[in-house]
Design a binder for these strands. Structure first.
Lengths: 145, 145
DNA sequence: TAAACTAATTATAAAGATTATAAAGTAATA
DNA sequence: TATTACTTTATAATCTTTATAATTAGTTTA
């Protein structure tokens, strides 16, 4: 499943004329295989075993390249650092206010909101973003004790 | 209108046992009267004429106090710095991807999304957040030329 | 009102995330 | 092979936000 996704992503890079270096490949692979939504630092730490000389700047550079191509989305929440999401298919996120865990969920796209906003404000709407916040199962149990 | 809002906000501060200092009053007043959603730095710059000795830390301190009381909401968008919104009534934002302008709009709360997310993920949902992105009227015109 | 206490402000430093720059390395192409 | 463009590394710089300590100001109490 994620192998197929990786393959497609590499294809997109090639088509865009972006070189596929070992570091770039590793960052991409880690992003696709990770089910969490890692920060740049998460990725850096995860790969420093394999690439002891890799610089943080390389992680950021590659994430920027991926974002520009449309391969990843950058998620900015309240906390200090951005998170990166490789799943570009339509989905929303629910975030645990207690431990920061992020879980995907699906819901039909909120087109009605977009068209209303367009009418009311006179903007040309391109997209929207929505997240739900709450307490995850694990944190609920911890709180009960 | 905003005088009334300022009065109510000051009342809330008093009830919470928070001192109303000149700087605090000025930050609050600026937030309420400004129709934009300023960053901490915007506020700092706007008030440095009146309070030449005011420190940035004071602005942040006061914003934190206001947030803790529930007087303002902190908005974290893609750009580097947080924005602060004094309008605590239910509403959503539409943001211009080109110039960063933020406009409020109203829409019935998305309770259905919250309850579905709750069922699917097992979270206890507390709230959600949604923004619409697009191009504002001004920027549309600029682009046409 | 004066003394004591508490909270707020200032000035400054520190932390953390991200971006910029220059030099060195690597791949692609003619 | 020589040239070119792209990528990485190392490092410094920037920017936002938080932390700390000292000072100031406001509030309470005697």
């Amino acid at each position: 499943m994620s192998d197929h996704q990786l393959h497609e992503a590499l294809e997109m890079l090639r088509e865009s004329g972006v070189r596929i270096t070992p570091q770039r490949h590793a960052v991409l692979e880690f992003l696709i295989k990770s089910m969490t939504h890692p920060t740049a630092d998460d990725i850096y730490k995860a790969l420093e075993g394999k690439f002891p000389n890799m610089s943080v700047a390389t992680v950021y550079n590659n994430l920027r390249v991926f974002r520009e191509i449309g391969l990843v989305r950058e998620l900015t929440y309240g906390d200090s650092s951005s998170r990166f999401d490789c799943n570009t298919s339509e989905h929303y996120h629910i975030i645990c206010s207690s431990c920061g865990k992020i879980v995907d969920f699906h819901y039909p796209s909120l087109e009605e909101v977009e068209s209303l906003a367009e009418q009311v404000t006179g903007f040309d709407v391109s997209h929207h973003r929505m997240e739900v916040y709450g307490t995850c199962d694990g944190c609920k149990k911890v709180k009960q004790h």
